[in-house]
């Protein structure tokens, strides 16, 4: 397929808390190709959002990105000057957030907020920016665009605000759109509309999307490629069909089994036993070992390495190293 747009290489982001160092992103490597939708899945606190914020270079203290590289078009974003980085944010890489209700500034009109990146990054005149903004509002499927342009955020519903957020993110034709749980705060019908909208945008503008979610339904619907994270590490990575058909890591298998199946009666959904390990006290082992049904002595001794198997499928689990299969 197309070239790599973004490449994470051994990224490490640590948080220095009073109770110890939290390795929020621990040696993470994966890449996003041009025009591809990549979903990052994992439970709360596994480092999905921190990975995205590291890419934007907006990890705030006590967090610090301390190792690795993030290559964008061949240049390392982590060593870029702040001024050049500012030019990339919002212009080449845009981002939308989980909470549409609070992501817009309450005292500025919708128009002010959509035109802002156009005025700053594209150097448009106010008049051109307004024209473009109204086009964008129409593009994200809001009628009466000219009126919405002069409205304030409190006059719009959650779904509309998320559309406006998407319009702002798209204003400068970014190469990559990071969506951090864009549908979590919306109800199901609106969720479906927003996902449709994002799919259309992707096909129309060939924008790559890095979608962060914990909803496997969203993954199945949107993704080309999936990265599964657990406790700051990538434990499995595969094209979406391959992952759903043939999950390798016991954690991913657990997630798949924990999903309700329509038209099938189940008294109780499967749950993965145990809890996410405390991120401060991670030892030198497989972080999933305490919860894993297939835990072996090797799993407690050293961490597995992300290894590539057939069909572009990568997994970090000792079970496969020995050529064994999970029964």
């Amino acid at each position: 397929m197309a070239n790599n747009l973004i490449e994470f290489r051994n990224l490490r982001t640590n948080f220095y808390t009073s109770s110890g160092v939290v390795k929020a992103v621990n040696d993470v490597s994966f890449s996003i190709r041009e025009g591809e939708t990549l979903c990052v899945v994992g439970e709360s606190g596994c480092g999905k959002s921190v990975t995205a914020m590291s890419l934007m270079r907006l990890v705030s203290p006590p967090g610090k990105t301390e190792g690795g590289q993030i290559l964008y078009k061949g240049q390392d974003l982590l060593t870029l000057k702040e001024r050049d980085m500012r030019h990339i944010r919002g212009n080449e890489i845009a981002m939308i957030f989980q909470e549409p209700m609070t992501s817009l500034n309450p005292v500025l009109t919708i128009g002010d907020q959509i035109t802002e990146p156009l005025l700053i990054h594209k150097g448009m005149t106010r008049k051109d920016a307004k024209k473009r903004a109204i086009e964008l509002i129409e593009l994200v499927g809001i009628p009466r665009a000219a009126k919405i342009f002069d409205s304030y955020p409190h006059e719009l519903s959650g779904g509309m605000r998320q559309r406006i957020m998407i319009a702002i993110a798209l204003s400068c034709d970014p190469k990559l759109l990071i969506a951090d749980e864009p549908t979590t705060a919306l109800d199901v019908t609106i969720q479906a509309q927003i996902l449709d909208l994002m799919r259309n945008i992707k096909s129309e503008f060939n924008t790559a999307i890095m979608m962060i979610t914990h909803d496997l339904g969203v993954v199945a619907e949107m993704a080309d490629h999936v990265v599964v994270m657990y406790a700051g590490k990538v434990i499995e990575e595969a094209p979406v069909h391959e992952l759903f058909a043939n999950p390798k890591h016991p954690y991913t298998q657990g997630l798949m089994r924990a999903k309700p199946i329509i038209n099938q009666r189940q008294d109780r959904l499967y749950t993965i036993p145990g809890q996410v390990p405390n991120p401060v006290e991670l030892g030198n082992n497989c972080y999933f070992n305490e919860r894993c049904e297939h835990c072996m002595s090797l799993c407690v001794e050293k961490p597995p390495i992300l290894t590539t198997y057939e069909n572009k499928h990568k997994a970090a689990c000792w079970l496969y190293e020995k050529g064994g299969e999970v029964s």
């Binding site: 919002g90 817009l104 500034n105």
Partner: peptide, 28 residues
Amino acid sequence: EQEFMQAAEVLGLRDRRKIFRHLLPNTV
């Protein structure tokens, strides 16, 4: 610390603009 400031940050605004256009009007 509000989300809309994070959103303003990912737009790549300068500090001056963030302070005087996005933050101060909220304290008016």
